[in-house]
Structure formats: C-alpha cells, structure tokens
C-alpha cells in the first residue's frame, strides 16, 4: 500500500541527516581549518618546508610526538604585542572599516528609504538594481576604480573640466581611495537590510504620529528610525565585519602605507614566510570580530521574542 513512500522511521532518519549536514559542513570547512590555523599560531617559525615547527608526524612514535609538542609556544602572540606594526594594523583596519560603515550608512539609508517608499510594483526592480554590481566580478570592479581615481583618471578629468580643481588631486593610493572602494563594494549589504526593515513598516504609524502633532521630521526620528534600527545594525555589521579583514581593496587602491590587517597578514604569510605570526594575527582578528557578531546574535534572538 505505502510501497512508494518512505517509512516514518526512514523519514526521521533523513530529517536528522539534513539537520546534521550544516554542522558537518561547518566542521569540515570552518572548525577543522581553524584548528590548523590555531595550531600553526602556536608553532615556531623555521626555515624549511613547512616553514614552522613542530610538524607532529605520528610516524615517529609517541615519544617523538611528545618531544615535538614541547616546541609549542606563545612566541608569535607575544611578538604581536611587541611590534607596534600589528597593533597599528588592527587599529587602522578598525578605523577604516568604521569610517566606511558610517559613510555607507549615510548613503544607504536615504537610498533604502526611497526604495521602500517607491511604488510597490517598482520595488522588485529596485532591489535587483541594488544588487546588480554583483553580476560583475568584484576584482574587475575594483580595477575599474583605479581607472577612475588615478591622477589622470576619470574623476580628476571630470573635476578639472568643470573647473572645480586646477590640477589633479591625488586620491588613488590614499586612505580615501580605500574608503571609497570599501563603501562602494559593501553598499548593497547596507541597503538591503535597511530596505527590508523600512519596507515592512506600517505606514499608518507615520500618519498616527503626524495626527498626534509630530512634524514629518519628528515622525521620522520618533517612529521610522527606531523601527528600522534592526536593519541599520544588521547592515553595519554586514559592512564592518568583512571590511575589517578586507585585503583586495587596500592592496589595489591603497598605498604601501595603508595599513590594514588583511595586507599585514598577507605580507607576513607570503613575503616574510612567518606562518605562525600570520596565523596568530588571524586568530586575534577572529576573536575581535566575534564580539560584534555575538552582540548581533543576541540582539536578533532578543528581537524574536514574542
């Protein structure tokens, strides 16, 4: 009778399997690599292949393994503190990412607001337009910005031809170029959550505020803005977190003195062949970013409470 249907037990099994799948994914592609990075961060730099020790080769027997394990140290972490370059990299990353987040918020909020207030039938198209840049490779779009921002680039040409400036101003290979690149690249991640929060808002709430004597501006600050705060915070985290670790944008648009942790990490790893140092940098950055992510999670679950 039920020949073609799976038995309830089989269905239960497959449901369990499905719930295990994301966990298995996380274990394989996040936890395991992270453990490897963690292990390297506690290792010592040496010349050779791989460029760190201990290697922990189980073929040498247990006693050899214990001897090797004695070589673990906190050296790379202490060097993070001793060399001001690392501290400056972290600080500068956080500053640049923070400034980019604020700039993106200031641009994205009016855009999201206009999208949410546009006629209903236009909104799907506007959302597609907001994410349209993703259809072109990220790398190509950043290269395109070098063409725009260079001294002889489009922007300087345009500014000079309308007479705003007399000589080219240097934007390319400055912090400003990095900032522009980050804001441009991550803007959709700010627009979409804010749009989502605004679009769901009941517009009669604004009418109620106006009716009760609030001007349009006060209605915005008393009702619209607080009710979209969840989208604002989500957008800020979605921009800030990846921007802190950004590598490509400072590498292509910034100057050699644009310190960002992603670049410092790459320099340690590739040029200095200091794998333990690079791994320690990565671990500290992850720990730093877990704080805002944890805050976001808590806020999300608090908001979901009935």
């Amino acid at each position: 009778m039920t020949g073609e249907r799976a038995s309830p037990q089989a269905e239960g099994r497959s449901a369990r399997l499905i719930s295990w799948a994301p966990l298995a994914w996380l274990l394989l592609f996040f936890a395991l690599p992270f453990v490897i990075v963690l292990k390297i961060s506690f290792s010592r730099q040496r010349d050779g292949q791989p460029p760190y020790e201990p290697v922990l080769d189980p073929s040498g027997g247990l006693s050899n393994l214990i001897d090797e394990a004695r070589k673990f140290s906190l050296e790379s972490y202490s060097s993070l503190l001793s060399d001001s370059l690392y501290l400056e990299s972290y600080l500068s990353s956080i500053l640049i990412a923070g400034a980019a987040t604020i700039l993106a918020l200031l641009i994205a909020y009016p855009v999201a607001y206009a999208m949410a207030r546009a006629p209903r039938r236009w909104q799907p198209l506007l959302v597609i337009l907001a994410i349209a840049p993703f259809w072109t490779s990220f790398l190509i779009r950043i290269y395109a910005w070098t063409m725009i921002l260079k001294d002889e680039g489009l922007l300087n040409h345009a500014l000079m031809s309308v007479g705003i400036i007399a000589a080219p101003i240097q934007i390319y290979a400055t912090h400003w170029a990095v900032l522009i690149g980050i804001v441009y690249s991550y803007l959709p991640f700010m627009i979409l959550p804010i749009y989502n929060a605004l679009e769901k808002q009941d517009r009669t709430l604004i009418e109620a505020a106006l009716d009760l004597g609030a001007t349009r501006l006060r209605a915005f600050f008393c009702v619209t803005l607080p009710l979209s705060l969840r989208g604002v915070i989500a957008g800020c985290l979605l921009v800030f977190i990846p921007a802190v670790g950004e590598f490509v944008i400072p590498d292509l648009l910034g100057s050699s003195d644009t310190l960002m942790i992603g670049r410092t990490l790459w320099d340690e790893f590739a040029s200095a062949r200091n794998w333990p140092g690079a791994a320690a940098l990565a671990v500290v950055m992850l720990v730093l970013l877990v704080i805002p992510i944890g805050y976001y999670q808590r806020m999300q679950s608090a908001g979901d409470r009935p």
Binding site: D202, T204, A208, A209, D211, L212, C222, V223
Partner: peptide, 11 residues
C-alpha cells in the same frame, strides 16, 4: 483633530 485608526497604529 485626532484619529483612532482602524488598525489602532500603536507604536
């Protein structure tokens, strides 16, 4: 003039 909205529109 004040209005009581059908949906109440409470903040």
């Amino acid at each position: 003039v004040n209005m009581m909205f059908q949906s109440y529109a409470l903040f």
